[in-house]
Design a protein around this nucleic acid. Structure first.
Lengths: 133, 133
DNA sequence: CAGTATCCTCATCGATACTG
DNA sequence: CAGTATCGATGAGGATACTG
């Protein structure tokens, strides 16, 4: 499973990471993925559209402000669409675009890695701290 | 290729993202991957060990301070090892661990996604800005 | 219900200078 | 060469209050 990855990586370094535009593209996406709520929002929307309040319930700890800001960014980037229904009380639903769904798919490997390696990381930290303390 | 991903994601939401520990593990890794230099450092080390100054040359724009901090964190997490050679002038080499290499492999899908979708994201932003301006 | 508007804090990051 | 120490800017993110 790791047989072809080194090749792919070499291509990144040679053909991509050194070029400014591609490096910016990657940093752009990684910054988004690395922020506190974006990936959690798209992952939560992976199973279907949800309204604002439903999202807030599904994502513990997110403030109204941060959820709004995150949704606006994701909408601006074309990862989800915002649908306002002209009703009283207002109803706003959010739904992933194809690109948004594909981002989740592309993130699965990294999420799996995170879960699988968390114990080893924890152990490494403990050992390091003991060594340097 | 996207056939099995939704299933995997559903498992994440049901079995993982709602549980505090796993969510912390994921956020932990995503924060690391999302920071400005970490993934760039491990990717650069993917082809073999490098010394401090070589890393700095390979990674344009990184300051001594940030490179040091990034390397210390990655070392603490067990993603690379730091080898100090008792020489004058001092020589310090950094090399990925197996876990460090596997992180790069796990990130390839996301990096590929970033490169492939960057144009579409750019277009979406332009359209959004025109719509809301 | 689905937001805005303000204020505030803290962590990240960069620049610069110094050192074993 | 491979760092450390210090300072300062920037901005992500949280708390709270208010609104169409």
């Amino acid at each position: 499973m790791t047989a072809s990855a080194p090749v792919a990586l070499t291509e990144y370094e040679g053909a991509c990471l050194d070029k400014d535009a591609d490096e910016r593209a990657i940093r752009d996406v990684l910054t988004r993925v690395g922020d506190k709520w974006s990936l959690l929002v798209v992952a939560t929307l992976r199973n279907g559209r949800l309204r604002f309040s439903e999202l807030q319930r599904h994502i513990p700890g997110v403030s109204q402000r941060m959820l709004t800001l995150t949704l606006r960014q994701l909408e601006r980037d074309g990862l989800l669409v915002r649908e306002v229904h002209a009703e009283v009380p207002p109803r706003v639903e959010y739904e992933l675009t194809g690109m948004g769904a594909s981002l989740v798919d592309a993130s699965v490997a990294l999420l799996t890695w995170a879960l699988e390696n968390q114990p080893a990381i924890e152990r490494a930290r403990t050992a390091y701290d003991a060594r340097t303390a």
